[in-house]
Amino acid sequence: MGFLKDLATLTRQGHEMQSRMDVGAQLAQAQASMEQASRMMAATTPSAPEPHLEAQRLRTTATVLDARQLPMMFGMNALVELDLHVLMPGGVPLPVTRTEQLAPLHLARALPGSTLDVSIVPGRPDTVRVEWA
Rank of each mutant, 00 (worst) to 15 (best):
S114L: 08
A110R: 02
M21I: 05
L105K: 11
K5C: 07
R20Q: 13
T115V: 15
V121N: 05
T11F: 11
M21D: 05
E100V: 15
V130D: 03
H15D: 13
H15Q: 14
M41T: 13
Q29L: 09
L84N: 03
E131T: 01
R109G: 02
V121R: 03
V121F: 03
L107A: 02
R109T: 09
G90D: 04
A110S: 10
L94P: 03
M73K: 08
N77D: 15
P122T: 05
L27F: 11
A37D: 09
L10W: 13
F74V: 08
A32N: 09
T60N: 01
V128Q: 02
P95G: 11
A110G: 08
T97H: 03
A67Q: 02
M34A: 15
Q13A: 15
M72L: 14
P112Q: 05
D83G: 05
S19F: 04
P95I: 10
D117P: 00
A48W: 10
L102C: 05
S114A: 11
A110W: 06
P49Y: 05
L111N: 04
L7H: 06
L111D: 06
E50G: 00
Q29P: 00
Q13I: 11
T60D: 02
H15A: 13
V92A: 09
R39S: 14
L94E: 10
T11H: 14
T97W: 00
G14P: 00
L4M: 12
L82H: 04
A28M: 13
G24A: 15
P71V: 01
Q31W: 08
L111W: 01
F74L: 08
G75P: 06
R20A: 13
H106P: 00
E100Y: 10
P104Q: 05
D6P: 00
L58R: 02
L65T: 07
A43L: 13
A108M: 08
L82Q: 05
L102I: 04
P104N: 07
L65I: 08
M34S: 12
A30G: 11
L116I: 06
A8F: 09
E131N: 10
Q101C: 08
P93K: 07
Q29H: 07
R39L: 15
R59C: 00
R109C: 04
L27K: 13
R68T: 07
P49W: 05
A108Q: 10
S38C: 10
L65G: 08
A28S: 12
T44R: 03
P46R: 05
L7P: 00
M72T: 13
V130Q: 04
M40Q: 10
P89R: 01
H15E: 15
W132Y: 07
P93E: 13
P89A: 01
Q18S: 12
E50P: 00
A43C: 09
R98L: 13
T63I: 08
E35T: 15
R124F: 11
F3E: 12
Q31A: 15
R59P: 00
H106I: 01
R98Y: 01
A103R: 11
Q18Y: 08
G75C: 05
T44K: 01
R109V: 01
Q26E: 14
R129D: 03
M72H: 11
